[in-house]
Design a protein around this nucleic acid. Structure first.
Lengths: 330, 330
DNA sequence: ATTAAAATGGCATTCGTTTGACATATTAAC
DNA sequence: GTTAATATGTCAAACGAATGCCATTTTAAT
């Protein structure tokens, strides 16, 4: 049997109240008593039952983190950063992979409520706004519009693809394609398409948007990319994520299309993983660490003051262009 | 205020006892009552407070999952599989990144106990055996020896590097190096080195073990690899993981060493990620899905019957060799 | 109509901890 | 030596749900 308060009290020769006071640092306490109690806790390897504490109104110090998957390096790095920052604020995470599945997302949401998490960070969205509004917990979202009163943190997606497009132009590309998810959903990621389109217009070029399904297997994606590269006259591609960009790079190699001479490529995300293992790729770098910090700090603030009015519902963080071989040859 | 049992009872016009009976499916219940209660729960969006239930002795349906990091695709894929299998068994995970840090691992262990998780799956190990024995919860480990009475699941690491080494030999390599972590810790991963050494001996070749620190940044790793490739006469490399193998491949390209003609490479892990984005790499494929299934099923069994004797403490799963361009040119 | 089974309610206790109210004892200050 | 602050203890009531016990009512079988 795991030791409880009363065991510690007996061991230390004090009352349970005193032990509780030591744990919660409340009321008058002498140093001697504190030491005695701590010694007893250590020797018994006592851990307060967090369930009982939370039941009594204390916070659980748990945050639900919902993302579609952790396999995508971008999500993995973001989640790891979030976990780190929460950990140093004495919060732990319950990780939920929604797999872009309504049912799973709904189940997880219910579970998080049942487990009395103090708040939620969401990077997925397959449910209706109502379901999020009903949660009744502080929520912060990454890159998704969950509900008008749930704050969103995102990168400057518009600026990102704008930069990518005009850099391709400056590097000499004139037939610039956009490869990514064109589905409009009111999410900040839609701005990636818009940034491309707006810049294309400004440059007086023709817009070419090629849809690609993220959920698809890389094999199918490769096929689609191959077809694209073979059937069209393309000298520049803006990809809405780095993994897709890598597939383009790979396909170009296979088809003996010279990169960057014949084809210039820019990706999106710029994870450390990509920077380290695919430094040849030019990409728009999202400030992952800053995103994580902001998500966490907004959430913690809302946990501490649930009734405070939202200062902002949109936080847009700056992106950087990382120039490399695939667009510039150096 | 979140609705509670009594609110549901009022709404449904029944007693709390009845509601509890519906939820726990216990005692005599008419279909009509069940429906009424369910309707009331739905309309109130009621979720039983899992803290209160667990406090009363019910399981928390939470499993702690401790790994060094989720950024490594191998861990990411393994964790995702674990998460999936646990989810379909109605368990959720608390994800803990130990960052190979004693303090963090200890903190997380304490937290998991405090949160009354039903069990732990661990893929990290920086603490003493005692600390794991003191936990007093079902634990299953991946690839790490935590304590003599904690079951370990791992791939057939010995066989893996044996296969890798002899395949390199058969493909013509005679100066075969091992690149990886040579530190002996009594962990199953030590067998990777042993598999290499034993096969080298059998083939009457000379063993060349080159240490590489996993925690190091890829940039530093690259330097170390460059030095290795430049200063030694090498025609085959067995890497203890795929990411390292990719760096070797990359370095070989830079140094204009022809792969596979002058240098043949085999990695280790064989994640879907690597198979999809680096199909050119030969590698030893660990059966990630099987590992996850086994970890989960052993854990759940120990959760259900904590007092049952351990049937086995070592479970070794078969690996496969995936042949590709980097060793065979096709 | 009698009897048993089925369906529900009421009440009290339990889980481990927190915390407020109140009492008492020790120490320090004036 | 009085007063006040400090230090500890006792006791009881929460927190939300589970459940055993007992009582009562409804339903169904004979």
């Amino acid at each position: 049997m795991r030791p409880k308060l009363i065991d510690v009290a007996k061991k230390a020769g004090v009352s349970v109240t005193t032990v509780s006071r030591v744990i919660n640092n409340y009321g008058y306490l002498s140093q001697a008593t504190k030491d005695k109690v701590h010694a007893a806790m250590d020797s018994l390897n006592y851990q307060p039952n967090s369930l009982a504490r939370s039941l009594h109104g204390k916070k659980t110090q748990l945050v639900g983190v919902i993302f579609p998957s952790i396999i995508n390096p971008f999500f993995a790095e973001l989640i790891e950063q979030i976990e780190n920052k929460l950990f140093s604020n004495n919060y732990k995470i319950i990780l939920c992979n929604s797999a872009d599945n309504r049912e799973k997302e709904r189940d997880y949401l219910k579970m998080l409520i049942a487990n009395q998490v103090d708040g939620i960070i969401a990077g997925t969205h397959n449910l209706g706004i109502n379901e999020y509004n009903k949660v009744g917990l502080p929520i912060v979202s990454f890159d998704r519009l969950l509900s008008p009163n749930i704050p969103i943190v995102s990168s400057d997606n518009f600026k990102g693809t704008s930069m990518a497009t005009s850099e391709l132009y400056q590097a000499g590309a004139r037939h610039i394609y956009f490869l990514g998810n064109p589905r409009k959903a009111g999410n900040p990621t839609d701005y990636r398409l818009q940034g491309y389109q707006s810049t294309i217009k400004k440059l007086k070029l023709t817009s070419h948007v090629h849809a690609i399904n993220f959920a698809e297997s890389p094999t199918l994606k490769l096929l689609s990319i191959k077809k694209l590269l073979m059937q069209h006259n393309i000298d520049g591609i803006v990809c809405s994520d780095d993994l897709t960009a890598i597939l383009v790079l790979k396909t170009a190699n296979e088809l003996d299309i010279a990169v960057p001479e014949q084809l210039k490529i820019v990706g999106f995300d710029g994870t450390s993983f990509i920077q380290e293992y695919h430094p040849e790729l030019s990409t728009i770098v999202q400030p992952i660490s800053d995103i994580a910090s902001l998500l966490v700090s907004i959430l913690l603030q809302r946990i501490d003051e649930p009734d405070s009015k939202l200062e902002q519902t949109q936080y847009i963080l700056p992106v950087k262009l990382l120039r490399s071989h695939s667009t510039f040859g150096y």
